[in-house]
């Protein structure tokens, strides 16, 4: 008969896993049309892996949605399509047609307008288009100050507005899933995971990751003190800039002109985890969109950014 399964994961990770699974099941049972936001990164990878576990042996009872800004790393898109195939899940890809028409891009339009139109607005449009009433996101509370106060089930009024003054209290594990027509819930099953938990779980469960997380020689330019990888020819070089090949990797992945790399020799998960323990900077440091002003993440969240 059956044997006790010894997980290759710590008790701490098992607790996190169980909590995330409980959250996902609650959503599948309570909402008519949920969706999982899949952003291709390490957190999305863990989230999808947990979802496959939550409903086993059934198939995933909701589709994945990727909001494609057209400026993701080519490696990310390859990884996305490989994952959809490997897990046998339904993947929806949405790009804001208005942004395409106006040719919004991070180079000419600036990071803030690009993010606004191609991510925030695009996400809202996609949710409206398919009529999704609940959307999973892979955000964690340890990422950023305003996310530390986010609920696991985060209520959005019609128009996808987050009001941090008026959040539903969340007690025990009694998640309030009730909404009226037009209202939605964003659900964050990884709320209580830390960056280190994500990597340790990824390693223990052998979850596929985008190769960009691992160090390799890649073409980069130095811009405003940051290392930006030139993933394709669309990114013009400023006067005096030169593409050099350096051993780099990414702690956080987004649109490539907006994602700063770190110089690193860490080319295995073991190395990444060791490097991270010694690190003195946070993962969002490489996110150019955060650094405008200290409260900018809260601003973006109010507007509907994940």
């Amino acid at each position: 008969m059956s044997n006790i399964i010894t997980y290759p994961v710590s008790d701490h990770l098992k607790r996190l896993e169980a909590e995330s699974i409980e959250i996902m099941r609650e959503v599948a049972a309570s909402f008519e049309n949920p969706v999982m936001l899949y952003s291709i990164g390490k957190d999305s990878g863990v989230m999808l892996h947990l979802a496959m576990k939550a409903f086993y042996p059934s198939k995933l009872p909701f589709p994945l949605l990727h909001v494609d800004t057209r400026w993701k790393f080519a490696d990310m898109i390859r990884h996305r399509d490989m994952i959809a195939e490997k897990y046998g899940v339904k993947l929806l890809v949405y790009t804001n047609p208005e942004g395409v028409e106006r040719n919004i891009n991070p180079i000419d339009s600036g990071s803030s307008l690009h993010t606004q139109i191609m991510k925030t607005e695009a996400l809202k449009k996609a949710l409206d288009l398919y009529g999704f009433d609940a959307a999973f996101g892979g955000a964690r509370r340890d990422e950023e100050k305003s996310r530390a106060k986010e609920r696991i089930f985060s209520f959005r009024s019609a128009g996808h507005v987050w009001d941090p003054r008026n959040q539903r209290p969340e007690l025990w594990n009694h998640y309030n899933t009730r909404i009226n027509k037009g209202e939605t819930i964003r659900v964050f099953p990884l709320s209580n995971w830390t960056e280190l938990d994500i990597w340790e779980y990824t390693r223990a469960e052998n979850i596929p990751i985008v190769p960009l997380y691992l160090s390799a020689p890649r073409p980069v330019v130095k811009r405003s003190g940051m290392l930006i990888m030139r993933d394709d020819e669309r990114m013009p070089l400023n006067p005096g800039e030169e593409v050099e090949i350096r051993n780099i990797r990414f702690r956080s992945l987004g649109c490539y002109p907006l994602s700063a790399a770190v110089e690193s020799e860490a080319d295995t998960l073991d190395d990444i985890i060791a490097e991270m323990r010694a690190s003195r900077s946070s993962e969002r440091q490489g996110r150019l969109i955060d650094s405008d002003e200290s409260a900018s993440m809260e601003k973006k969240k109010k507007e509907g950014y994940f």
Partner: peptide
């Protein structure tokens, strides 16, 4: 200031919501 996450809280100097830290 490290843990008082929301903008309004920083201005008013009080914590007005639950924040989780790890």
């Amino acid at each position: 200031l490290l843990v008082d996450g929301l903008e309004a809280e920083r201005q008013q100097g009080i914590t007005i919501d639950v924040a989780y830290r790890f």
